[in-house]
Design a protein around this nucleic acid. Structure first.
Length: 631
RNA sequence: GGGCUCGUAGCUCAGCUGGAUAGAGCACCUCCCUUCUAAGGAGGCGGUCUCAGGUUCGAAUCCUGACGGGCUCACCA
């Protein structure tokens, strides 16, 4: 519709305006609610070349277009805006087209390039929390949206399974786990803890013990006891300690932190952890066995969490594999002069011509840093999928700088595909009490939250009592569908780029702009359609405004999917669906559908309802949200 | 301190490639179930779009500055 008007104006620009016009001058917008019409053209851009008032210009263009296009029933001009009213026939044709198209809104499958979407990418020491939920839901949804746009999509993640932090939890478990009557240490089999929770517990335990030991060291230093410590450590302590005098409270805190770090470095515990890392890199059999055992616990625990989330992956990557690839890349780039080596043998890249500092890519002891493995991972992925046309990294915005540099280095290494890498940078999820902090115990656990939300859905659904006839199994499935739908919608209706507030108190809300509200409308339509049985053809109907508004909105669905894909934004899908549901509910309460006596009208309204349900289901599936037949 | 980013109703958020009188939900107040699912609908209350300049026919939207919040600038990940 817009396109037809646009090309007509472009083709006849000479006759209408006396000159060729730029396509950008043709601006459409939604017609205001209080003005008659379905589509509005902004007239201001044409006023100058027509040398007349906006209303005269609008009238001239309006008359011209209406004479050429039969879908324009009438037009009016209000203060510089040309409003068209579109004929019922046009809308009815649109409705019947989409009714025949089971994939309304979707581009043909695999009609576009292959993309990879990375999301989740957990640290194996930390059970998944609320922040990961936003990440997983977003990543999964963006992947689905890109598929709907015709892309072939590979869902992936990079598992953060190596490094000193992993050794910390291994060491803590070996050293601090109590033994049971059979002489076994704690495991998922002999405790009630999920594997990821168990490992996470020992990661925390390591930190606790480390602090304890560091405090003991500081206490001895403070009494002047320095036996067994290197001279530079003692000097550093004395320097820091004496600099405390004559300072304000804040800088004293900073100095104390430095002293703490100094002492931590001197603990036997940390030394042993580092030793373990060296052994791990040397593939020491005993350490390797411990590593694979504890990792398998974590994966099993994560698996059940992913299942509850309803997300999946096509291909996994492990840092324990890709850091080696990264090291090779760096050795190679070093030869080519892209990187440089300092005296201490650490390897860097100079980014000063980009206005940035130099960045470390390999430690002086030759071990890998975060950047090293990310370079390797990207390279690995393009090697595995030669037709890959881009990677979308779903990672929080605290890593904006990291990704800027990662893409820059890949470019400098000569990988042309680096230009197609995109950081889907999303904002933090804050609690009413502020940011989640593990040390303060304010982290909202993913498993707990999901269980909670499903339990609340159960309670609230039972209160309504709409579904007594369902089997227990179906009821449970419904509670999960509603609870998870509410949670997912809550986390995805906000623009991904923005940080958002999560209030656990009303994490599952049923009214207003929520998942269950949308699900409810779907269920209501389904119930209507079931009662109606088969739907007959209809003829000669005229539309109410409520009806043409809905068809107009449904017609926009294909463009919406395209926009959401370009913007990598599930929020656009969520808001669109909410608007659709509001339009439908308004319609539902203003007319009879099943009880309508005019058969043609009744059938048209049923077809309309059916297509609303279809689009709701499609849109929600793009968000990873299921919709019920009954609720 | 440098860089990035955000600031819209009491709260949570839309709107931002410049366009008409800035929109929703929650909360609060009225109404509507002998209508097909009231997890619904209709209405009311609520705004100096942080502030100050600028660009122009027109600015919540673009530019500059100030103020306030967040992130980041590790041989951490």
């Amino acid at each position: 519709m817009e396109n037809e008007i646009k090309s007509l104006l472009l083709d006849n620009a000479k006759a209408l305006f006396g000159e060729i016009i730029d396509e950008k001058l043709i601006q459409f917008q939604k017609t205001r609610k209080d003005v008659e019409g379905d589509l509005t053209l902004v007239i201001f851009p044409f006023v100058k070349m027509l040398k007349c008032s906006p209303s005269e210009a609008g009238e001239k263009i309006g008359v011209f277009l209406q004479s050429k296009l039969d879908f324009i029933k009438s037009h009016n001009v209000v203060s510089g805006f040309l409003n068209f009213t579109i004929s019922d026939e046009y809308w009815l044709t649109q409705l019947s087209k989409m009714n025949k198209d089971s994939r309304h809104g979707y581009a043909p499958e695999n009609s576009k390039s292959t993309l990879m979407v990375e999301y989740s990418s957990p640290n194996t020491n930390k059970p998944l929390h609320l922040g990961h939920l936003r990440n997983n839901f977003l990543g999964y949804s963006v992947a689905e949206i890109l598929k709907a746009n015709g892309h072939k999509v590979v869902k992936t993640q990079i598992v953060n399974d190596r490094g000193i932090h992993i050794c910390k939890s291994m060491l803590a478990w070996e050293r601090f786990s109590p033994l049971n009557s059979k002489g076994e240490r704690e495991s998922p089999e002999n405790t009630v803890l999920k594997g990821d929770k168990l490992v996470g517990k020992y990661y925390v335990e390591f930190d606790k013990q480390l602090n304890k030991e560091a405090n003991e060291i500081i206490a001895s230093w403070e009494t002047g006891e320095f036996d067994g410590f290197a001279d530079y450590v003692v000097d550093e302590f004395n320097r820091l300690d004496s600099s405390k005098s004559a300072k304000n409270e804040k800088s004293i805190d900073g100095i104390n932190t430095k002293i703490k770090d100094l002492a931590k470095n001197e603990t036997g515990l940390l030394r042993d952890a580092k030793e373990m890392l060296v052994k791990w890199e040397g593939r020491d059999p005993q350490v390797y066995l411990l590593w694979t055992t504890m990792n398998s616990w974590v994966y099993k625990g994560f698996e059940s969490t992913y299942k509850a989330m309803g997300v999946d992956f096509d291909q996994l990557y492990f840092e324990s594999d890709t850091y080696v690839v990264g090291k090779d890349l760096i050795a190679d780039g070093l030869k080519k002069g892209i990187f440089f080596k300092k005296e201490d043998k650490s390897v860097w890249i100079d980014l000063s011509d980009e206005g940035l500092d130099a960045k470390l890519v390999l430690r002086s002891d030759g071990t890998a840093v975060y950047m090293t493995q990310d370079l390797g991972t990207a390279f690995d992925r393009y090697r595995d999928f030669p037709d890959l046309n881009g990677i979308i990294y779903t990672v929080g915005n605290e890593q904006d700088y990291h990704f800027k540099i990662l893409f820059l280095i890949l470019k400098k290494l000569g990988f042309t595909w680096a230009e197609n890498c995109y950081h889907l940078s999303y904002g933090m999820v804050d609690l009413p009490t502020g940011r989640m902090k593990s040390r303060e115990g304010t982290v909202v656990d993913a498993d707990d939250l999901m269980a909670d939300v499903v339990a609340q859905a159960k309670e609230m659904t039972q209160e309504r009592g709409h579904i007594e006839e369902l089997s227990t199994e179906d009821k449970n499935a419904l509670y999960e569908l509603i609870g998870m739908g509410g949670l997912k919608y809550y986390l995805m209706k906000v623009d991904p780029k923005k940080s958002m507030m999560f209030n656990p108190e009303d994490s599952i809300e049923l009214n207003g702009n929520t998942g269950p509200f949308i699900q409810y409308t779907h269920a209501r339509i389904k119930s209507l359609l079931n009662k109606a049985g088969s739907i007959e053809e209809y003829l000669n109907v005229s539309l109410r405004e409520e009806e043409s508004e809905i068809i107009k909105h449904l017609t926009h669905f294909p463009a919406l999917i395209s926009e959401a894909g370009k913007a990598h934004s599930p929020a656009l899908i969520a808001n669109y669906t909410y608007d659709l549901v509001k339009l439908y509910n308004h319609f539902y309460q203003s007319v009879y559908i099943l009880k309508e006596e005019n058969e043609d009208l009744k059938n048209m309204r049923l077809i309309l309802s059916k297509n609303v349900a279809k689009v709701i289901a499609s849109a929600m599936s793009l968000l990873g949200i299921k919709v019920p037949e009954k609720m």
